[in-house]
Structures are given as C-alpha cells and as structure tokens.
Design a protein around this nucleic acid. Sequence first.
DNA 1: TGTACATCAGTGAACGCGCGTTCACTGATGTAC
DNA 2: TGTACATCAGTGAACGCGCGTTCACTGATGTAC
Lengths: 239, 239
Amino acid sequence: MSTPHKPRTARERARIEFTAEIKAVARRQLAESGAAALSLRAVARELGLASASALYRYFPSRDALLTALILDGYTSLSDAAEAACSAPDSGPADALERWVGVCHAVRDWALTHPHEYALIYGSPVPGYSAPQDTVAQATRLPYLIGALFTERLAEDGDSPADSRPAMPDDARQSLAPLLTALPPHTPADMVMSSLMAWTYLLGAVSFEVFGHRREIVTDPRAFFDHEARRLGAALGLAP
Amino acid sequence: MSTPHKPRTARERARIEFTAEIKAVARRQLAESGAAALSLRAVARELGLASASALYRYFPSRDALLTALILDGYTSLSDAAEAACSAPDSGPADALERWVGVCHAVRDWALTHPHEYALIYGSPVPGYSAPQDTVAQATRLPYLIGALFTERLAEDGDSPADSRPAMPDDARQSLAPLLTALPPHTPADMVMSSLMAWTYLLGAVSFEVFGHRREIVTDPRAFFDHEARRLGAALGLAP
DNA sequence: TGTACATCAGTGAACGCGCGTTCACTGATGTAC
DNA sequence: TGTACATCAGTGAACGCGCGTTCACTGATGTAC
C-alpha cells in the first residue's frame, strides 16, 4: 500500500529499510513503557540519530508513527489467526477445533505482544483517533470467526441444540447494516453467534493480558482452552 | 477506611470535603483527557489553588490520587451492580432476569463513566501498579455474578440443558485456590460458568465503550440486551 | 476566659526533566543532458 | 562518460510547553493550661 512499486535506487531501499527499523524500535519502546510514553526523541536516541527531527523525513508526526504501529498490529494479529485457522498439520479439523485454534493464536499473539495488543484492543489512546485505514485490517478477525460459523452451518444445517432465546426485532434490526454487507440469507442468529464469539475471545484475552486473572487462575492456558471449548459449544459450534 | 472516626473539628471537616473535591475535579479531568494526562497542576488550577504543591497535603503523590480514583471506581461500579441485583421494584425476579439487570447496570455505569471504566478494566496505566487495597472492591462484581449462579443451582439443581464439554483436570486444578476460598462442594463447573459470564460481560462492555462496535451495531442497547440473555441462557441461567 | 504554643493549610519560587515540532543548514545521492 | 543541477537525509539549535516534587515561608486554626 505504501510501497506501490519496487525500490529502484539505493536511496529508496534505504528508506524502506529505515522506516521498518524505526517501527521496530518504536514497537520495542511500546513494549517497555506503553503507548502514551512513546516519544520520537526516545526512538531517535535508540536509533543513534543525532536529533529527533530526522524522523520527520519518515513520519509526519508522532501520531502517524502510532497509526503505522496500530495498522501493523492488526495485520500481524489477523495473520496469526488466519494461519491457525488454515493450519495444514492436523488434517481437516472440524469447526470447533478450528475455533479453539484461532483462540489460542490470538491469545499467544497477545501474550507475546502485550502492548501492541493494548494498542488495538485496550482503552483508546487519549487525544488520538485511529484513521479509517485500519478498518480493513481490524475486521479480518471477526470475519474469520464468522466464516467458522458459516462452515458449521453448511455442514449440519442450523440445528442449535441449546435452547437459545429468540432474537427480538430491535436486536435483529440493529444488525441490518451488517446483514446487507453479508451474503443474502445469512441468518441473523448466526451473525449474533459470531459476534458473541468474537466478544468473548477478546474479553478473555484482555482479562488475562491486563492482569485481571492473575490472582484467580493458576494455569491460564488450561483455563483458556476449556473456556474456548465451552463457549464454542454453547454457541453451537460443537459437532 | 480512611475516616475511622467522625470529624470533630472544622479543620477535619474541611479536610474531608476538600479531599472529595479534589477527587471530583480529578475525575472530571480524567473524563476529558484520560488517565495518562491526569496532572496535579491541572487539578490545582481548576480548584483555584495558587500552586499544585498544596495538593501534597492531601495526597502524597500523583499516583496516590490515581489509586484513590481507581478504588472509588470499583466501589461505585460494584454498588451499581449490587443495587440492580437486589432491586425491589419488580418483585423476586429469576436468576436470568437478575443477570440481565446486572449486565445493564454495569453497561450503564461504564457508558456514563467511560474513563473511570477504562481506568479499572482497560489497559493498565504504564508505570503504575494498583495496590492490594483495590482487590476487595474489585472482587465484588465477580462474586455477585457467582451468587446468581449459586441461586440458580439452589432452585433447580444442576441440570445443564446445554451439552457442555466436561471440564478437564488441568482446568479444574487451575481453579483450586479459588475453590478452597468458596464454600465446600461448590461445583467447579459452576465457578467456570460464573467466570465466563463475568468475562463476557466485561468483554461486551469494553467493546462498546472502547468503540469496537461503533461501525457494526446500530442499536447497542438492544444488541446488548439480547447478547446478555443469550449468554445467560447458554451458561445455564435460564429457567 | 485568656494566653502561649503547636499544628496544619496554602503560597510562591525553584529544580530538573522530557516532550513535539520548526527551521536554516551541510553534505551526499540521484538525474538529465 | 562527465558534468551541472535537483532532490533528499540527517544535523543542531531553538521555541514553547507542561510536568512532579521539594522547600522555606506566612498566616490561620486548634489545644493545653
């Protein structure tokens, strides 16, 4: 997107490399002190630059650098989730197993990149608003989860074993814009399931990353695995 | 806790009042610029003080003020949730209805106090770690949710209509410390349900407060009401 | 009830810090003929 | 292939800002006799 053609000159190559280096250092500092403390001067210092003003050749402002990190974060997280979903190692797993795989991928990514995770799913950085560019990357994960439910529906038809309450009209209408963007005849109930799965997944991961389970659960991974399975089953993903 | 006896002198009364005033102003500024931007100098300015140093008579540091706000936040949120749970207006509602009531109370509180909400359930403030004092207040909400499941269990025995997967040993053992703190014979499965309900509730509220549903759901309240009901039913709260 | 002393609240100046951003500049890299 | 010019990368100084915290101080409020 930002590199529409191949680098032709040495200068251009250097520019691309150095841009990546800036982002790498910024990510490292993010991991140490959080988003609010990300400072161009500190990044310049760590890069060995004589002054922070050099960075303005690469990013027009501090916020632009932050935006680039957010975009990269969404991309990296979505990549990990999609890779887990289509992992070729254990044959064609059913929808529930793939759901659990996606859950672990998201959790693993969040635990190894806690501050990037906080950047995209934590409290918004005050005074900063993410631009529209991020939307495309941000929606990849929920769409991936939706695909799991679609697949399950195709396998077995809509046979919810759970006694789920009927969806009232106001809730159904609340999804109208989303439903028109999806293939026709997508059941609103299934969209609801997908959104709930997405909500739960990030609620659980946020709790763990932000420390709300530290005093409560001794083996977070085992706990997480079970909750993912139970939720998947409760939402109708079980075979 | 911080006021073990009644104020006796005018000075003491003034001190208590002014402490509350400081916190109120700090909360207001929190709502404008977020936790990272909370500054003693700005608070002093808004209070009409000549200098920020006066605040050191009331709070030993900026972090101490932040801690007080966090503690108040937990208290206020828990109060709201408990009030909703024992609301006397509509007679003795069943467990599911009370669960939905608690959900709405938490959501309403979060929407009217978004920055305080971010302070307690959002990404941790970098460089700041909440002291142990907050734990007692922080656990009130999950315990309240647990009580709903206990109540439901007492009503009907454990008859999970949903085909929930069995809890593996490692997950069960992960809850060992929590189970010893609870009344004996509390089923691990029910604890699991409570924790999952808690996780979902805050996941959903965080999504809404942090803006991840802005482009997706047009009537957030209707959506939230339905998801709360569906989740409650899926976790076994339905009659 | 009155006085001497101790305690406390708020002042104002100061220390030392780091930040984002602008700007005129030098020197190197690329381009066109 | 060589030269003249344009483009770009990084420098260093500067502007103006706000912050947390300390400290010696004045004046008011409380206490003990």
